[in-house]
């Protein structure tokens, strides 16, 4: 796989030299970040439609912030601090599944359970981080929190590619079933849908996607990329088709523009922040269209 990335990088470098692509494409890290953006964009945009439909926006935020604790645990356990994937995936998956299990068993509202688990995770993370302060440069954590395209390597791209392929292969055939389960669990059950199993599967999907996107978008902001493109798409869509494809388009464009624009304009901002700001522009524009356009004025008080 790595030689495949090398091949793409060589092509990009060549096209950048002859002037077909912008000059910055000569650098390997730029090509890496573009490749990641092209995977993350459609993935988060597509899954985001389901996150919005299922009202799981703050769940992804909780998982994103639990990643910080996962990194701290990884450093304590001796994993490389640039990519402690075993601890990240291990802690975040456990965190997501236990949170969902607690919500199911206690029948408490989602926001209450997520709020409690988010606080526990942050408190635990803060304690472990203090312990590892002496071991690593704390600026490494900025990359986890806000994303940094400079740190993306072939391992990160492999992880992202594998997660994308798995989620697309599992999520697309089960898309209708997952949607149905959120509309009316009782009806879904009658139609042979295993509601609880799909719920856990979806939680697992959000968790692994969140972890795989950390390097580019950042722990604090990854949740925004699930929600903002889907919310923007909802502003101007009149069907599921529009909802899904607009969301994928907005998300992919946000990632690409958010990665490329700061480099071309030499603006020193973290990639996560730039991506979300671009996504926010889409949201504001579509919100204005919704407010101005008569056909979308269907909201009632």
């Amino acid at each position: 796989m790595n030689s495949f990335y090398d091949l793409i990088r060589i092509f990009c470098e060549h096209w950048a030299r002859v002037g077909v692509l912008p000059e910055s494409f000569q650098y390997a890290f730029v090509v890496n970040s573009i490749l990641c953006a092209m995977l993350i964009g459609p993935l988060l945009g597509g899954v985001g439609t389901m996150v919005v439909t299922k009202h799981l926006a703050f769940f992804s935020q909780a998982v994103g912030q639990a990643a910080l604790t996962g990194v701290a645990i990884g450093i304590v356990l001796g994993e490389p601090y640039t990519s402690p994937y075993a601890s990240l995936f291990g802690f975040c998956i456990l965190f997501g599944l236990v949170m969902n299990f607690t919500r199911n068993r206690t029948k408490m509202s989602s926001d209450t359970v997520i709020g409690v688990f988010l606080s526990i995770s942050l408190a635990f993370g803060a304690c472990v981080l203090l312990y590892v302060t002496g071991k690593v440069n704390m600026h490494v954590l900025d990359n986890i929190l806000f994303g940094s395209i400079l740190t993306i390597n072939d391992t990160d791209m492999n992880v992202l590619l594998v997660i994308t392929v798995i989620c697309a292969s599992v999520g697309l055939p089960l898309y209708n079933r997952m949607l149905m389960a959120s509309f009316n669990p009782s009806l879904a059950h009658v139609r042979g849908i295993r509601v609880k199993l799909l719920e856990y599967l979806f939680i697992l999907m959000i968790t692994v996607i969140t972890v795989a996107s950390l390097k580019v978008v950042g722990a604090v902001l990854v949740e925004a990329l699930f929600i903002i493109p889907a919310a923007s798409a909802r502003n101007i869509s009149r069907s599921m088709k529009g909802f899904f494809f607009y969301s994928v388009t907005f998300s992919t464009l946000s990632c690409l523009v958010g990665v490329i624009l700061p480099m071309e304009l030499s603006i020193p901002v973290p990639s996560g922040g730039a991506i979300i700001l671009v996504a926010s522009v889409f949201f504001l524009a579509t919100a204005l269209i919704r407010m101005a356009g008569g056909r979308f004025k269907d909201a009632a008080i």
């Binding site: 898309y175 149905m180 088709k241």
Partner: peptide, 10 residues
């Protein structure tokens, strides 16, 4: 489409 088919409704 959501209730009748396996292919995504979108």
């Amino acid at each position: 489409a959501m209730v009748c088919q396996g292919r995504p409704a979108f």
